[in-house]
Simulated scan of single mutants.
Amino acid sequence: MRRPLTALTIAVVFATSASAADFVIEPTTVPVMKSVFGQVQSRDTLPARARIGGTVVEILIDEGDAVQFGDEIANVVDEKIALQLDAINSRQAAIEAQLENARTNVERARKLFERGTVAKTRLDEQQTAFDVLQNQLDAIEADKSVIVQQAKEGTVLAPASGRVLSVPVSQGSVVLAGETIARIAGGGYFLRLSLPERHAAGIKQGDEVTVGARGLTPSDDGEKLTTGHVAKVYPEISDGRVTADVEVDNLGDFFVGERTLVTIPIGSRETLLVPRPALMTRHGMDYVTVLKGDEETEVTVIPGESFTIDGEDFIEILTGLRAGDTVVAP
């Protein structure tokens, strides 16, 4: 019976009897895996910049903190803004006083005109003087709005949701408009791999990879392993290496720039596989029972890698078996 593999092609033909199962071994195509270190990268690294120049009077975040888009992370104060605001408030108060006097003159001139005491030109002059002062007041209020907005822009906001990578300034620092107050890593994380050029043709977008636990050493604990897939293979080879990005869920606990072990398929090869129960070990030697004619004979073999196919465990046989051999397993 032919049994399909996920992303592989394998054929294992077998017949069953009352006491044993006979497997006719055929060449099997298996992936060639390579372990490399992947580096955690953030999709976006955005600077939170000061919108005005001044003195940093308050920093509300620290490296490693999680922030949301629009959160207040620092305050920058320009003392000249307060002086400008005081000056424009004084100008506004003076114009408002003149405007109130002009309004009184207009009302007086209108009453005198209605009695026929003054000419129409006198009323027009008073009305024009009032309109000029009103326009001056409107201009002052517009200038005041600009200054108030500048004062509000002293609040530095998070440009994206994510984690704070660095805060290159400290409280009391003098900064210019546009200077970076903090760097935010946002948009989620992925793994970036760099492999030798000879593997470029074997890496395909969508290939499944295995990602180890945190740390730079392999882990034999399957519960600590996770899987991902190749999201992008960059078309440019630089310094003899090809770059690929791997998407993995739940990388939020990793540090940006942290490295972890990634096992990625770089090609395929043919080998012989037998079910794991068929392999027996005695006195440090590995044996497989082979059916030759009507007799069962134990053959010494050298096993290789293990593979799981459709939920069943198989073991690679490096030497001792040939294609077409019939293996007997309990």
Rank of each mutant, 00 (worst) to 15 (best):
L318D: 14
V169I: 15
A244V: 10
G215P: 01
S17V: 00
V76L: 04
G215N: 03
E312K: 15
G320T: 08
I140H: 03
A200P: 07
T227W: 06
E79S: 02
G70A: 09
I59W: 00
L85S: 07
V146S: 08
Q127S: 13
I264Y: 08
A109Y: 13
V118R: 00
E100Q: 08
L85Q: 10
R115K: 05
I317S: 07
E223I: 00
V246D: 05
K232T: 15
P265W: 06
T227K: 14
T271N: 14
V156L: 01
V164K: 09
D78H: 08
D245F: 01
A15R: 14
L8S: 09
E270P: 07
P4A: 10
V256I: 13
G202M: 11
K292E: 05
T9E: 14
S194P: 05
A11C: 03
F69R: 06
A201F: 04
I25W: 01
Q150L: 15
F130G: 12
T210I: 15
A329L: 09
G228N: 03
D138M: 06
L261E: 05
E100L: 02
D65F: 11
F307K: 09
V301S: 06
P218H: 12
P277G: 08
F190K: 08
I317M: 09
F254A: 09
L321P: 11
I181Q: 02
L165C: 08
S42A: 15
P159E: 10
Q39E: 14
T319Y: 12
F314K: 06
L225W: 02
T9A: 12
Q92S: 14
Q150D: 14
D65R: 12
D71V: 04
T297S: 07
Q68G: 13
G252K: 11
T300C: 01
R183I: 04
G284W: 08
G320K: 04
T289V: 07
V328I: 13
E125R: 08
L279T: 11
V327C: 04
R108C: 00
I52M: 10
D286H: 10
G188R: 12
E197L: 00
S42T: 02
G186H: 08
A109H: 11
I264K: 04
S306K: 07
E179H: 02
I10V: 04
T263S: 13
T210E: 15
G186P: 03
K292R: 15
R49L: 10
K232G: 01
A87W: 01
G324H: 07
D65Q: 10
E208T: 06
